[in-house]
């Protein structure tokens, strides 16, 4: 009897490991589902919340064409987050990386993505991937020298893995403006070199997926 218990205990961890989902397969599935989207356009609302920037909520239309053409059209000036847009996430996953299964929570697989290239602009990222739909719910990225950022996605019912909302939170260094020029910008010197947190909330609507988008849209002034 005690020998049986010993054998079970000895192999239990390995049994668990064998039952663990394949992280690389999950990543491949995410990429496969995203590859269905060749192009899209959508109305976008961008709300920037950074403690030293006040900018009105911007509404515009976003255009994307695989693999990397992107355009945001809006009247006036807009700040668009560099990271956390759906296609930039896919860029990150489709580069040379290795995926490690790091566990799961109630709804998500948790994957660690490690870049294999020295040129990659991130050191490590953690992805929370919805078990049901193989969609990214959340991701946290440690970049090379440019702080960390986190993106949370929610999805609607459009039939594609395109988000309805994205919430991008990131580190940002307060501005060191050598300027007495356009006003009085008072910087707290004790915080001058500290990074503070910023959040951008993006809401997408009126998606038009895999329609024809002329290339001129991406090149026009």
């Amino acid at each position: 009897m005690s020998v049986r218990i010993f054998i079970v205990l000895l192999f239990f961890p390995f049994a668990g490991a064998l039952a663990q989902p394949d992280a690389n397969a999950i990543v491949r599935e995410i990429l496969r589902r995203n590859a269905i989207v060749k192009s899209f356009e959508a109305d976008v609302t961008i709300d920037v919340d950074v403690d030293f920037i006040k900018i009105p909520v911007k509404q515009g239309r976003v255009f994307y064409k695989a693999p990397d053409k992107f355009r945001f059209r809006a009247p006036g000036f807009a700040l668009i987050p560099k990271r956390g847009l759906n296609f930039s996430v896919m860029d990150m996953l489709s580069g040379p990386t290795t995926a490690i299964y790091a566990g799961a929570d109630e709804k998500n697989h948790i994957l660690k993505i490690v870049p294999l290239s020295e040129k990659a602009d991130f050191v490590l990222s953690t992805f929370w991937v919805d078990m049901k739909n193989s969609r990214i719910s959340k991701m946290e990225v440690n970049t090379r020298g440019k702080g960390n950022f986190m993106v949370e996605f929610t999805y609607g019912n459009i039939g594609y893995d395109l988000p309805e909302t994205s919430r991008v939170s990131f580190d940002i260094q307060p501005v060191d403006i050598p300027m007495n020029f356009t006003g009085s910008f008072k910087i707290d010197k004790t915080k001058a070199n500290e990074r503070s947190q910023g959040v951008v909330f993006i809401r997408y609507s009126n998606y038009k997926v895999n329609g024809s988008i002329p290339d001129a849209v991406f090149t026009e002034e």
């Binding site: 700040l79 940002i172 307060p174």
Partner: peptide, 17 residues
Amino acid sequence: DLLMKNLSDVFVFQGDL
């Protein structure tokens, strides 16, 4: 550009100020 240097790590600027 000088003014927005730090922000350009995080944002893409659309439009002209």
